[in-house]
């Protein structure tokens, strides 16, 4: 067995040991994971962002417009001193402002308009029969929206309607949990397969 598999296998076992209790081996592995992953992000960000997107085009191709993000980035480092800390608020303003600007139409479209228009369907079918699913959708949507209505206390008839909304919410949470169990288990199964076949060679 090669050294890579031994190390990966041991580290896998050590991380699992956290389930029993916090222990020195786990503490060591945890600290190593944090350290190595920070180091990894540092290197990847340096090569993919700073070199490829900033320094190369700026200094080799003389794309002068890149001076703007260069300075925005440098301003961020102003946080190292109390005197220059105000400079860092400019790049933060750029991020927060542009993020908010793009969020308005995209959130409105993807989260609100699209979801809303997909809910509309006739409550009677052409043959005159009741469209139960359609009614469930409409009642569910309206009552859940009533739950999210903050201007009124949940009392009386309105309160009862909003409470109906919470039942729909609970159906959603239960359903999601049920469906997500699978994806949570599959990573575990993957790790066990690695441990049993690659590391311990018990199964093939």
């Amino acid at each position: 067995m090669d050294i890579s598999t031994i190390i990966a296998g041991l580290l896998t076992l050590i991380i699992f040991s956290f389930l029993y209790k916090d222990n020195p081996f786990y503490k060591m592995a945890e600290s190593l994971l944090i350290g190595v992953s920070i180091g990894y992000v540092l290197v990847i960000t340096w090569s993919n962002t700073l070199m490829d997107m900033l320094f190369e085009p700026l200094f080799s191709n003389a794309e002068l417009s890149l001076i703007i993000p260069l300075f925005l980035g440098l301003f961020m480092l102003g946080r190292f001193s109390d005197k220059t800390v105000a400079l860092s608020r400019i790049p933060i303003a750029v991020m927060i402002g542009s993020g908010a600007g793009i969020a308005i139409p995209t959130m409105l479209y993807n989260r609100t308009i699209k979801q809303l228009t997909a809910s509309v369907m006739p409550i009677f079918t052409e043959s005159g029969g009741l469209n139960i699913s359609g009614i469930v959708v409409i009642v569910g949507l309206l009552s859940t929206l009533a739950y999210f209505y903050f201007s009124r206390e949940h009392k009386g008839k309105f309160g009862a309607f909003a409470k109906l909304g919470t039942y729909f919410l609970m159906i959603f949470f239960g359903t999601t949990f049920g469906y997500t169990v699978m994806s949570r288990m599959s990573t575990f199964i993957g790790r066990m397969e690695f441990l049993l076949s690659d590391f311990l060679k018990i199964t093939q």
Binding site: T112, L116, S119, V120, M121, P122, I123, F124, T125, E126, G128, G134, I138, L141, L142, L145
Partner: peptide
Amino acid sequence: MIAVFIVTAVIWATVESL
């Protein structure tokens, strides 16, 4: 406004369907 929109659209769709 959303609630009003939905109710209107659903009634509309139902009438058209019927």
